[in-house]
Amino acid sequence: MQLNHAQRELTVKIVYYGPGLSGKTTNLQMVHQRTSPDVRGRLLTVETHDDRTLFFDLLPVFFSTANGFKVKVKLFTVPGQVIHNATRRIVLQGADAVAFIADSRRAAGQENNAYWKNLVENMKENNLDPAQVPIVIQYNKRDLPDTKTDAEIEETRKKGREPVVGAIAIRGVGVLETLYTVLQSAYRSLEARAHLSKTIGLTEKEFLTQVFANIDVSGTELEKVLPPRAPGART
């Protein structure tokens, strides 16, 4: 988190982490698609010829609070390929929360574990305390054959304290739910550390409502959680 009182600006950084081809970029593309151009920047992506993220993706989303504080949420992805570990460390620097995108196929278990360990290591290298930087796990590719059953995923969830969200990112399923969960976790952690509601008067409700005010949540679970949108609002 970067909080600039002089410029009345708060920047929150979310990093999408996980093995190569697990769907990190797809998540960002889906968020980008569903967000009004008024409140987001362009999606910056550097890909190799085989459509794999070379460096990172970056999608900024911004809004102003009722108190006139500018809030920027920067969504990053890390490159999945093993050789780009240094880039992963750099992108991870200063993260406020991490969305760990796991491939839910059984065959990907080992790879998920390897990147989970890599995440923990790189957090340590960046001086990020896992107790203060929350992680949300997204089990992506739930539609593919050989995917873990709901019961198996429930087992995984019980092993740790991280929230787990199922997803089929390529169809937009679970993408916004993951974003909501990771932003909520980020806010709660920042609130505990920096008391955002007192220092800049930004409550969890306002934070989440404002971010999602210009994101099209129709057809997602978030319709039940977020206040109904004004009819005719731009998306």
């Binding site: 362009r42 910056l44 460096f55 570990n85 240094a86 880039t87 460390r89 750099i90 992108v91």
Partner: peptide
Amino acid sequence: FAGQKMFLTTQVHIEATLDS
């Protein structure tokens, strides 16, 4: 946009090389 992309990727590449 083009300039930002080039600037960021070049800088991150340099940072990554130094860090490696």
